[in-house]
Amino acid sequence: MLQLRKVHHIAIICSDYETSKHFYTVVLGLEVIQEVYREERQSYKLDLALNGDYIIELFSFPTPPPRPSRPEARGLRHLAFEVSDIKTAVQELQRQGVTLEPIRIDEYTGKRFTFFADPDDLPLELYEG
């Protein structure tokens, strides 16, 4: 039987590298592990960590094709981040200029959550753990 241990990372291709780099590092506060420019691909690769754990690879490419990204589109539905206090997290994101949906309550767990988007309209979620 396959013995998966954990999710290693999530890869995201962005349309504007500097804008997305700012969003993920300054607005969300992820830590930069390594940033490289791959000349042969005309592409940046930014490795990001959350609380010391490698979590996201942010890529740039010269002309990436658009992709539907709303939660109901086929494929990855959204990327969720756990927070301990959703109201505080929402206030901090709003202070950074991020627009969020109203906080909702998960009907099965009773936990609070909300959605917002990254600069490429990738759906992101805050989930109170």
Rank of each mutant, 00 (worst) to 15 (best):
M1R: 12
L2W: 14
L4P: 14
R5E: 08
K6S: 12
K6G: 01
K6R: 11
V7Y: 04
V7E: 08
H9K: 10
A11K: 15
I12L: 02
I12N: 03
I13H: 15
S15F: 14
Y17K: 13
Y17S: 04
T19E: 01
T19N: 11
S20P: 00
S20D: 07
S20K: 00
K21F: 11
Y24L: 03
T25D: 09
T25M: 02
T25K: 14
V26P: 04
L30H: 03
E31L: 10
E31M: 10
V32I: 05
V32S: 07
I33H: 04
I33C: 11
Q34K: 14
E35H: 07
E35C: 03
E40P: 04
Q42E: 10
S43I: 12
L46N: 07
L46M: 13
D47C: 04
D47V: 05
L48P: 00
L48H: 01
A49G: 01
L50M: 13
L50I: 07
G52K: 15
D53H: 08
Y54W: 12
I56C: 01
E57C: 15
S60R: 06
S60K: 02
F61C: 13
T63Y: 14
P64Q: 05
P66R: 12
P66F: 03
P66D: 10
R67W: 05
P68Y: 12
P68Q: 05
S69E: 06
R70Y: 12
R70A: 15
R70T: 14
R70L: 08
A73S: 06
R74I: 06
G75K: 09
G75W: 09
R77P: 00
R77H: 12
A80R: 01
A80Q: 13
F81K: 05
E82G: 15
E82D: 09
E82Y: 14
V83Y: 02
V83I: 07
V83M: 08
S84K: 11
S84D: 05
S84A: 13
S84G: 13
S84M: 15
D85V: 13
I86H: 02
I86F: 03
K87G: 05
K87W: 09
T88H: 15
A89T: 09
A89D: 01
V90H: 00
L93Q: 04
Q94K: 14
Q96C: 15
V98R: 00
L100V: 07
L100S: 01
E101G: 08
P102W: 15
R104W: 13
I105F: 06
D106F: 09
D106L: 15
T109R: 12
G110I: 13
K111I: 07
K111S: 07
K111M: 07
R112S: 08
F113P: 00
F113L: 15
T114K: 00
F115Y: 10
F116K: 03
A117G: 03
A117I: 08
D118V: 05
D118E: 05
P119F: 05
P119K: 09
D120P: 14
D120Y: 15
D120N: 03
L122N: 13
L122C: 01
P123F: 02
L124H: 00
E125P: 02
E125K: 07
L126P: 00
Y127Q: 09
E128Y: 10
E128I: 01
G129P: 08
G129R: 05
